[in-house]
Amino acid sequence: MYPSRFHYEAPRTLDEALDLLQAYGDEAKVLAGGQSLIPLIKLRFAAPAAIIDINNISGLDYHEEDSDGSLYVGALCRHRTLERSPLLRSKHPTMSATAPLISDPMVRSRGTLVGSLCHADPQGDWASVMLALGGEIIARSTGGERVIPVSQFVVGPFQNALQPGEIAVRARVPAPRGTRSGTYLKLERRVGDFATVGLAVALETSGGTINRAGLALTGVGPSNIQCTAAEQALAGKTLNASTIDQAARLAAEAAQPKTDVRGSAEFKRHVVYTFVTRALSNPQARAA
């Protein structure tokens, strides 16, 4: 790979990184797992003047729950860690279903969840999951920290809400109201492929009644799509053939697929319908 010339910085502390970011302004790019940024600079689609490699900063590679049950995922927590996490397996079915479906083992061992949210690829899987879970990003600059809901963080294809000088330091998933269930379904052409259609489902239920439903779609719009109407239709209900069918239809309507080499818009919409039906009929299922 022969990218354009760039300055390479490898700060050892977050403060140092923030100072560098401040100094370079919007000429700089943060490098986390590099699994999206490096392909871009390799193809010279991106030519940042400086790269701020945050991999030498300690204390960013973690995922943990705090006392109130919120989950925090640090900026250097790799997909692979999440794939193997006992914590996710026992308490976060949607996330735990997603991690093994991100690309292949090589990409998973480098790429990060936070980096994926920052990259805001409409075909990125984590943003859908975070939308379904009501997740947030915590951004830090030399001026301090602020909290941005993922629904406002991903502002368009490959665009996030960070200001120049800000680093996303962690993601937060709030504690559930009731019992969590859910899954992630992904239609891919091959292992390691981005989603033709992806669906994140995250339910919080008490005694069969849905307190909160999160549904979000990958690969079928200019950004990840939160299926608000379907979510609202499910809230307060129990799952049965008719509520499932209604949610599946609303989700299919929310999709904005395009016809391309992976398939027609009509096909993708139908897969959304099928996936929602399957996921809600068996919320622990993993497939496709």
Binding site: L187, R189, T196, K258, T259, D260, V261, R262, G263, S264, A265, F267, K268, H270, V271
Partner: peptide
């Protein structure tokens, strides 16, 4: 690819894959 098999089944028609690739 899944799209072609689904379309053939749904519309009971042959599916051509000749370029140009389909678009909106």
């Amino acid at each position: 690819i899944p799209d072609r098999v689904w379309e053939a089944l749904k519309y009971r028609r042959d599916i051509s894959g000749a370029p140009p690739v389909k678009s909106d």
